[in-house]
Write a protein that binds this DNA or RNA. Structure first.
Lengths: 154, 154
DNA sequence: CGGCAACGGTTGCACGTGCAACCGTCTGGA
DNA sequence: TCCAGACGGTTGCACGTGCAACCGTTGCCG
């Protein structure tokens, strides 16, 4: 069977990265979806606003690299569930600074440790030097692909 | 602002992996989407069948880890475009072995080198030992998440 | 002071996807 | 021989998402 330039998909790094990211998401979803009924966009918004109150939807979109409509719809859900509220800024009535409600803060406080624990468990399959190497490679690739300035507006 | 257990999303590995995978996909899409009008599922099917003729949709789904409906719809497109054909197996008329048509083979022969070149360019931002470390870490994580036996049916 | 472009945020639409139900085919056991 | 269950593959449906157009607000420039 005349394949000159063949390609094994299972050894192809972009494919492997994609597959790994999906599996890791699924691995985490056990926490935020099954136990807290949050989807990925909602979880990201909670995490972002929880770490820095007063951010606007725009800023959340920039630092999470989500499309602004995705943020908008996640916010709709979160406001319906009483986890996030927004005040109208006095300076500029277009932008709507976001903050966790007391209920949102409670959820955040319970959720974050579980998620961090899950990350630790995942990375525990690597030796210490391997971990560092992975993080370094990630940083390099992010820089190469122009992903680094994402969180500038912190 | 009383955050005890705060979480920086930008430093959170699952988030970074997801974002990286999206960016890498976009980086590759320049080739298979813009120049060959293939979407990711179609490209994966082409790659899989191109490397091993006679595979069934089922086997393609297993080795690419795509949902079988996704494979089914990708195949519909590829058959419409005359890139893939299928014969009815004599032994079992349920399964439909797939093969590239001559046109499909020509496309495969042009596409694969470009995609491999793109992968090389991407990884070239890493030093040789960094590359090896990344691949090793990927393999460990894949094993931990039960992703390794995916390509068993080769 | 007035108009217009730019901005923050939302919404209608089209589309890809996962799920579950389905169709035709095969197989093993009664 | 026949029937029930498993299998390969397809399809109706609901849903999340990106895109483009939109609404209200702001600020710049004439």
């Amino acid at each position: 069977m005349s394949e000159r330039a063949a390609l094994r998909l299972a050894g192809f790094v972009p494919f492997r990265l994609n597959r790994l990211a999906v599996a890791v998401s699924e691995y985490l979803a056990v926490i935020y979806r099954d136990r807290f009924a949050l989807e990925i966009p909602e979880w990201r918004v909670i995490a972002t606003v929880g770490a820095a109150h007063g951010r606007t939807a725009q800023q959340v979109a920039a630092s999470t690299r989500m499309h602004k409509t995705r943020v908008s719809r996640a916010l709709l859900q979160l406001r319906r569930r009483g986890l996030i509220e927004r005040r109208t800024s006095r300076r500029d009535r277009r932008e709507l600074p976001l903050r966790l409600t007391p209920a949102g803060r409670r959820l955040y406080a319970r959720l974050v440790p579980l998620v961090l624990e899950r990350e630790r468990t995942l990375l525990a399959c690597l030796e210490r030097p391997e971990q560092r190497a992975l993080l370094a490679a990630l940083a390099r690739l992010e820089e190469f692909l122009g992903l680094t300035e994402a969180d500038s507006g912190c």
